[in-house]
């Protein structure tokens, strides 16, 4: 395909090589990668996940949403000639020449049971459920391992001093892939710590949004029932148009205009 329009099309095109098969003549660039030590030649525009499927692997685990949200496809790899151990989400990272890689299907960790409604909102709650955070040596390995580029060590430190807000804000983009927990020398399960921080902050610390409360109340009353019914009745063309209209209104609103 000579003319490539946008990223979505690129991905769809790359996917074809996996789902339908592709004539090797059509592939311009090849990458040599090592999956669990065995060498494979794969089209260079594939993601790690697609490359593995191209190579003949079938995922019954280590694969979920394929869109970078679920955190199931953790991969660790080293580049040829480098000492650094790197991490990636297999569905979000393109293969590169000389990657030595393996999938990590699961990070073994027990999540403590707590009641968000009954748990008091006080600093030492973190230590009660996750005493191991006191073993943190500030080595920063977790931050380096995070494929989401979060400041993991910083939020573990914030948890140690009971700062719910900082934990929630720093860990907001966590997808719970478990890389931090697998690399931690202090055996902390960081993603469970941050989840506790977020739910507790969400319930007790986050400032109440009055507009949201109003809309929830209106929804419960059934004010939007008609709109929903309309929306569900639209055909493809109509719904595309409705979406465009909504986006235009949103853009106008964000610019400062009124709806």
């Amino acid at each position: 395909m000579a003319k490539e329009k946008n990223i979505m099309e690129k991905i769809a095109h790359a996917n074809q090589s996996v789902t339908k098969g592709i004539d090797p003549k059509d592939v311009k660039h090849w990458a040599k990668i090592y999956i669990m030590g065995k060498v494979y030649e794969v089209p260079a525009d594939l993601t790690i996940m697609q490359a593995m499927e191209y190579a003949g692997y079938r995922f019954i685990h280590s694969c979920g949403c394929r869109a970078g949200f679920c955190g199931a496809c953790s991969t660790i790899y080293r580049m040829k000639g480098e000492y650094k151990l790197q991490t990636a989400m297999a569905c979000q990272t393109r293969v590169e020449c000389g990657m030595y890689l393996v999938q990590l299907p699961f990070s073994p960790a027990e999540k403590p049971i707590y009641s968000v409604t009954k748990e008091p909102y006080e600093g030492n709650s973190f230590l009660k459920y996750f005493p191991e955070i006191a073993r943190c040596v500030s080595c920063n390995t977790c931050t380096k391992a995070c494929p989401q580029d979060l400041e993991v060590m910083d939020y573990v430190q914030a948890a140690l001093r009971g700062d719910f807000q900082r934990v929630a804000e720093l860990s907001f983009d966590c997808i719970q892939c478990g890389m931090c927990a697998l690399r931690c020398p202090a055996e902390i399960v960081q993603y469970n710590v941050s989840q506790f921080g977020r739910v507790m902050y969400g319930r007790n610390g986050f400032p109440e949004n009055k507009a949201l409360k109003k809309v929830v109340k209106a929804t419960e009353k059934g004010e939007y029932k008609k709109d929903f019914k309309n929306l569900l009745g639209l055909n493809m063309k109509q719904s595309k148009e409705a979406y465009k209209k909504q986006q235009a209104t949103k853009a106008k609103f964000l610019k400062g205009g009124k709806k």
């Binding site: 943190c136 500030s138 060590m153 140690l160 020398p185």
Partner: peptide, 21 residues
């Protein structure tokens, strides 16, 4: 961005990781 200092110093000669904090 300060972090916990470790509260006790490591007293063995080769234990460097506990100085990092």
């Amino acid at each position: 961005r300060w972090n916990c200092c470790g509260t006790v110093t490591s007293l063995t000669q080769d234990d460097l990781i506990h100085h990092i904090a």
